[in-house]
Structures are given as C-alpha cells and as structure tokens.
C-alpha cells in the first residue's frame, strides 16, 4: 500500500508542485527588500547609533561629570576628566571622549546617565577618514547633540513610560 502511494505521488509530481506553490506564494506576497540607500528601514526610538551629548534649551550642557557611563561601559570606550568649572564652581567634565572603535553600542551609557546627557542618536551612517577621528571629543558630541536635539527629545519622551 505504501509503495503504491509513493509511486502515484512521484508519477504525478506532487512534491514538485508543492515546492512550486511556495515559490508562487512568495511571488505575489509583498516585498521586504529595501533599496538602501534610496530606501531606509523604520527605526525604533531606542535605536542605538552614534553618541551625542545633549544640552538644555538655554545652552547649558547637561553632563555633570558623575562618571557613571565611564564606569558602566563594558568596552572601556569612555574617558572622562572632570573638575570644578571656573565660572560657577559646578562639577563639569574637562574631557569627554568616546572611542567608537571600542564601543559595542550596547547603550549602557545612555541607561546609566542620571540627566539624560549621553544618548545614542539614530545616526548609523558615518565614516572616518583619518586615524584618530574615531575618537569623539566633547565638542563633537555636543555638536551632534545640538543637531539632533529635537529627535532625541522625542525619542526619550516616547520611551519614558517604559523606564
């Protein structure tokens, strides 16, 4: 009996038709391939791209040099020097550097920050042309922060209720 069933199946090319059915189904289903860079995938508000240091609307940097991000970073990518700011005696960084070659984009720094200062933007397309440019200095980070502030504020707002 079994043998007979097998014979009929192979004679009628059932297996082949089954396979073709899959092909057929996929031929008419919607396509997911993205034509990067013309097209781009949607991003989560939690996307972890290049870092930025945010500032308050009045221009004051947020970072208070608590050094928690430096401590939590599993890749030891962050280096901070801190001190008393001359003008008002507040606690500020004198050096804040992230080495992007070391960074593994885990997002721990962002999570540890008590003042939402160090964040990861949605930017993931960047390149370096010179040796050493992979080190993001405090100036660069603050600048990135200024450029993307609107988006960053929105993203943090969107994520706030889960934190």
């Amino acid at each position: 009996m079994k043998k007979f069933k097998q014979f009929v199946n192979s004679f009628l090319l059932v297996e082949l038709l089954k396979g073709l059915m899959v092909t057929g189904r996929h031929m008419f289903s919607p396509k997911v391939t993205i034509q990067y860079p013309e097209e781009k995938t949607p991003q989560s508000p939690r996307f972890r791209g290049i870092h930025a240091l945010r500032s308050y609307p009045n221009g004051e940097e947020r970072c208070i040099a608590c050094k928690l991000c430096e401590a939590v970073c599993p890749a030891a990518a962050i280096t901070i020097d801190a001190g008393v700011r001359e003008s008002d005696g507040s606690r500020r960084t004198t050096k804040y550097e992230i080495d992007l070659f070391k960074c593994i984009f885990c997002g721990f720094c962002e999570e540890s920050c008590p003042v939402d200062s160090i964040v990861e933007t949605r930017v993931f397309e960047y390149h370096f042309e010179e040796q050493g440019a992979q080190i993001l200095t405090k100036e660069k980070l603050l600048e990135i922060g200024l450029i993307h502030e609107e988006q960053l504020a929105q993203d943090i707002e969107a994520d706030a209720k889960y934190r």
Binding site: A65, E70, A71, A82, G83, V84, R91, R92
Partner: peptide
C-alpha cells in the same frame, strides 16, 4: 581634588 575623580577609578 574636588570633582577630579571617583573612588572606583
């Protein structure tokens, strides 16, 4: 040494 370093480093 105000604000210079954290104990853990």
């Amino acid at each position: 040494s105000r604000y210079k370093a954290r104990a853990w480093e």
